[in-house]
Design a protein around this nucleic acid. Sequence first.
DNA 1: TTTT
DNA 2: TTTT
Lengths: 173, 173, 173, 173
Amino acid sequence: MINRVVLVGRLTKDPELRYTPSGVPVTRFTVAVNRTFTNQQGEREADFISCVAWRKQAENLANYMRKGSLIGIDGRIQTGSYEGPDGKRVYTTEVVADSVQFLEPRSAQGQPPGGQPSYGAGQPSYGVPQSDPFGTPFPSQPPQNQPNYTRVDEDPFASSKGPIEVSEDDLPF
Amino acid sequence: MINRVVLVGRLTKDPELRYTPSGVPVTRFTVAVNRTFTNQQGEREADFISCVAWRKQAENLANYMRKGSLIGIDGRIQTGSYEGPDGKRVYTTEVVADSVQFLEPRSAQGQPPGGQPSYGAGQPSYGVPQSDPFGTPFPSQPPQNQPNYTRVDEDPFASSKGPIEVSEDDLPF
Amino acid sequence: MINRVVLVGRLTKDPELRYTPSGVPVTRFTVAVNRTFTNQQGEREADFISCVAWRKQAENLANYMRKGSLIGIDGRIQTGSYEGPDGKRVYTTEVVADSVQFLEPRSAQGQPPGGQPSYGAGQPSYGVPQSDPFGTPFPSQPPQNQPNYTRVDEDPFASSKGPIEVSEDDLPF
Amino acid sequence: MINRVVLVGRLTKDPELRYTPSGVPVTRFTVAVNRTFTNQQGEREADFISCVAWRKQAENLANYMRKGSLIGIDGRIQTGSYEGPDGKRVYTTEVVADSVQFLEPRSAQGQPPGGQPSYGAGQPSYGVPQSDPFGTPFPSQPPQNQPNYTRVDEDPFASSKGPIEVSEDDLPF
DNA sequence: TTTT
DNA sequence: TTTT
């Protein structure tokens, strides 16, 4: 069985880092991939593909990427379902990123989005370590003892023996 | 922008051929891809991935494949949306198959599912040409003047200049 | 049978357009892809992957890309062999690009390398249409009756019925 | 940087397991991938793609696959070079298999190639443990203290921190 | 609910 | 040096 996806596209939003109850970093995001062909009206449409990244990939995404960033994803399609608010089953499809590539030129990198206005903030925050995991510009350790971060569904691979991350880069560039 | 998917898995159902109002063959189907790793409970789960094939790929699928068949897909992820019955927007993700590979051994092929009972039909239909596009075991031409086949949404690429099918094989094996 | 390759990397040289005896444009080039992991010495190595593009892809490559450009390739591995100078058989492996993506930011594009500045020519030719296919910044027609361009091996797909180019974009961006 | 390959094809030979000086299992093999299109003469050609698998993948290959077996590979292209016998540099391209899929139907599996005549050997060898790593039908541990196995070049990833195997299956089916 |  |  083979299930392989490669995407190159742009983030539709600033990625937001979350943590599972057991402290595993996770980021959900959408990649807009422009089609290489046009429709009947001669317009170039795009596909908006839901993705999820875990651990270091999630942190790198949140620390170095923002809305509009060009990104490469190597991953797999994962489907699932959940009980909708109306009691009906909702089926989901998303790409789980094994590895994430940051394809912006150097000049466009290094301005990590923080709580501050992204471009041209008043006071420089780059390189200033923060205690808030959402603000730190460098890959952070899972905040083991920080009680009030955002919780998400538990990492389904928390105790899986298979490797989750293919690329173990500490820094994406 | 890159959007590439490769899947190898099994059909969850006998594929069913449909035609757009303008006579373009289309088949929607689901591929079950077993994961190569196990979950916390030690179970091997599967992803159930929605796919669509057009034209010759659609015909080959309907003519030569059935529930359980091992299949290889080379395609791309396509997203879209439609108005749900309750007026809410429903978002969709599917794989559009550029090319389809039939990975069953020869012995398991050649028993095309037809209008007849697929498994264990009374009279052999193999190789018997039919006028009904749903029953013919060989790739058929779009039934231009047959009014009462099943209609589906129009082929969005009907007049697109880009190639839809990467592989132009007349026969899949 | 499935044979799919996706690469994102940088051109090791300015691409050079050639034509087959029957006038089909072809460009051979090497893509350097940095590995996402390091070796025992802690160094990040790269793979230098031989590629070939035909027709419009070849022209776009030659017209818009240069040494160092970031490029995405969607293609397949092709192997072959030829008689070496010493009479021994030499085996080759290369990636045939079905589609080529130009991943440089806009600012880095639009300066098509020509005989001019790039390779040290006198006057700027940007945007100035030329009859010479090597100088024109826009995709050109195969120069059917120009006798003295560089000849290469005949296009093996010249009369193949299968589609060669997946993406039919006239302009890569 | 992205470097992803997916292949489905057939082994051109029975795979042979080797070990590096430090005991890492490695198998080199060639996958024949039939093209999905025909050449000018209407013939369907094939690409013969050099591959290498390490560790458990190498063992599974040697234990469960033979000449002609249908196989799926998820991997990356790796290039390198070595000093040829005539002192000239020889450049190599091969696919490093991150994961290997065994696509034969069950009936064709389970007859591990051994020293015995492959199909229909007189005495059943399946499931009979052997001390020879080349004959055992189950994944074996690296033969740490067996001096006289075949040596090959050292595993270049022996001490790499990155994961080598994406799929950690003990058994391929 | 979408990116350049 | 190649597979079905």
